[in-house]
Amino acid sequence: MKDFERKQLLERVEREGAIVGAEIPDRIEVQGEEVDLQSFVFEIKRRDTIPPGERERVDSAKKNLRRERLQRKQLIEDGDVSYEEGERLADAIVGIDRALNALEQLGSANLEQEAQAKEAADKKRWMKFLKKALGHEEADSGTGRASRGL
């Protein structure tokens, strides 16, 4: 492989938008083991949250995918492969990145939902406090206007 071809492939796998439109590979060899990557990712994403028992499995899969991505990228960097093999490696890296992105989004979406729920609860408590402080509580609380006989 020529230097400019290697640089081109490395640039492609590091490009921020590389995963846009990319597909998760059906099957991929990760750390010497064949994995049905697409079905694994879809199985995990189908659930709204990752059950505690599955969290370790997902974290392990992400770690192995990152390691596999690094190994494939190093093969391209070393330049000891043909350009065609480099293209196959780059395609696999982009597919791995797509799978990692999908798995990472699942965790961050849950955190975002939790943050939104917490913010809504905080607003509700704040409004209740303000109503009470300003004397606008319901008549049955004994602190509002209705209890004063107005």
Rank of each mutant, 00 (worst) to 15 (best):
G149F: 05
P51M: 09
L75A: 04
L37Q: 00
E112W: 02
E16K: 01
K7M: 12
D26N: 08
R72T: 01
A18Y: 01
G21K: 06
V81Y: 05
S108L: 12
P25Y: 00
R125K: 14
L70V: 14
I28S: 02
M127L: 15
S147V: 09
G53R: 13
T143C: 07
D59C: 12
G53M: 12
D80S: 11
A146D: 14
S147A: 15
P25Q: 02
W126G: 00
I44S: 04
R88E: 13
G144K: 04
E54Q: 12
S147M: 07
A146M: 10
A121N: 04
Q105R: 15
V94W: 04
F129I: 00
E137K: 09
A139K: 10
R57H: 09
M127S: 08
E138Q: 14
E112F: 03
E119L: 15
G95Q: 00
E43R: 10
G86M: 04
G149R: 03
A133W: 04
G17M: 07
N101Y: 14
E23R: 02
R27D: 12
L134S: 13
E23S: 08
E119W: 09
V81S: 03
A109M: 12
L106D: 05
F42G: 04
R69L: 15
F40Q: 06
E56G: 08
E77V: 15
N110V: 12
R145Q: 13
A99E: 00
H136P: 06
A146N: 08
L37S: 02
K131C: 03
Q8Y: 14
L89S: 01
A115K: 06
E29R: 10
Q71D: 09
L70S: 05
K63N: 12
K7R: 15
V41M: 03
K124G: 01
L37W: 01
G17T: 10
A109Y: 12
F4Y: 14
I19L: 07
I96D: 01
A22C: 06
G32I: 10
D36S: 11
Y83V: 04
K123S: 05
A120K: 10
Q116F: 14
Q71W: 13
Q116W: 14
S147N: 13
E137M: 10
E5G: 02
R46H: 09
R69H: 11
E56M: 13
A133N: 08
A109R: 14
V94P: 00
P51H: 09
H136D: 11
D122W: 14
K73M: 14
D36E: 14
A92H: 00
R6D: 05
A146E: 15
S39A: 13
E5C: 04
V35H: 03
G135M: 05
G142W: 06
I44F: 07
I93Q: 02
E34K: 12
D48R: 13
A117L: 15
V13M: 06
A90W: 01
M1P: 02
R15G: 10
R6S: 05
E68T: 15
R98C: 05
